[in-house]
Design a binder for these strands. Structure first.
Lengths: 131, 131
DNA sequence: CCTTGACCTTCCAGTAACTGGAAGCGCTAT
DNA sequence: ATAGCGCTTCCAGTTACTGGAAGGTCAAGG
């Protein structure tokens, strides 16, 4: 199967698939013409990675997940450990963004947003402490 | 004022301050020895940028905010427009992360996390559609 | 047989915003 | 004088791609 076909079926851009080969996530065969020749096995791995990426796992985590994926006998605890770490990271980021959103919303609400120069947003930015 | 001093007062690493000069956010004077010589004016700009960055504004937005900051007569509407766009972006990201967190949490909860290979997390990843 | 156009190849560069490190000065104190 | 810290510049690496150029391949139509 050619790369365009795989791209369509996996939902990943061809460029990205070539990149994934570069960094060793997949190792498709090559035809006599030099074209990559993907087995359905490769297609599944790529779709797997695509899904993991869409869940926010890093490439390195995807690499680990792939190796666990290919090990039919690995313990589910190994997989869960990765997911848990990732979840914790997401929740930290979430809390951070929530605080940010609240701060910004407050500033925006308090700003008249008219032709006058008075602006609580600017005041807040300018008020940054310079010990 | 030397860069180390400015770094301490502004809370920004010296490396970052040099980078900010590189990209034209500040233009400190130079002493005869080649050392950067920051005025309190530069220090305030850097602290301003540091605060804006910590609120998640991009460097380009910081550049715009700085120019508005230096224009005592700009309309508060201009500032608010930037903040509003940024807030919208944050809220989109927030919604995305919330969905992600829910999905992952569900998967993690359903995974036994023991020595057995059965794993709903893996099942979900592997189940990615390959049209 | 030739051409056209879609598809494939590699390689180089750029993105955002720094960060680390090397090599080499300047400054201050002992 | 020398030790040691602070300053300088420059180069490279980070993350995960993405865009584009230059050129080879393949199938279809004339």
């Amino acid at each position: 199967m050619n790369i365009g076909n795989v791209a369509e079926r996996s939902g990943l851009p061809a460029k990205t698939i070539r990149y994934y080969e570069d960094i060793g996530l997949v190792r498709p065969a090559r035809g006599t013409n030099g074209y990559r020749d993907f087995a359905s096995y490769d297609l599944h791995k790529l779709a797997f990675v695509g899904r993991a990426r869409s869940l926010g796992f890093s490439i390195e985590e995807c690499r680990t997940l792939l190796s666990l994926y290919e090990d039919r006998d690995r313990a589910s605890a190994d997989v869960r450990a990765i997911a848990e770490r990732h979840l914790a990271r997401i929740d930290r980021k979430l809390a951070e963004l929530q605080a940010l959103s609240a701060t910004l919303r407050d500033l925006v609400v308090r700003c008249h947003g008219d032709e006058r120069p008075e602006c609580p947003i600017m005041d807040d930015l300018a008020q940054a402490g310079t010990k």
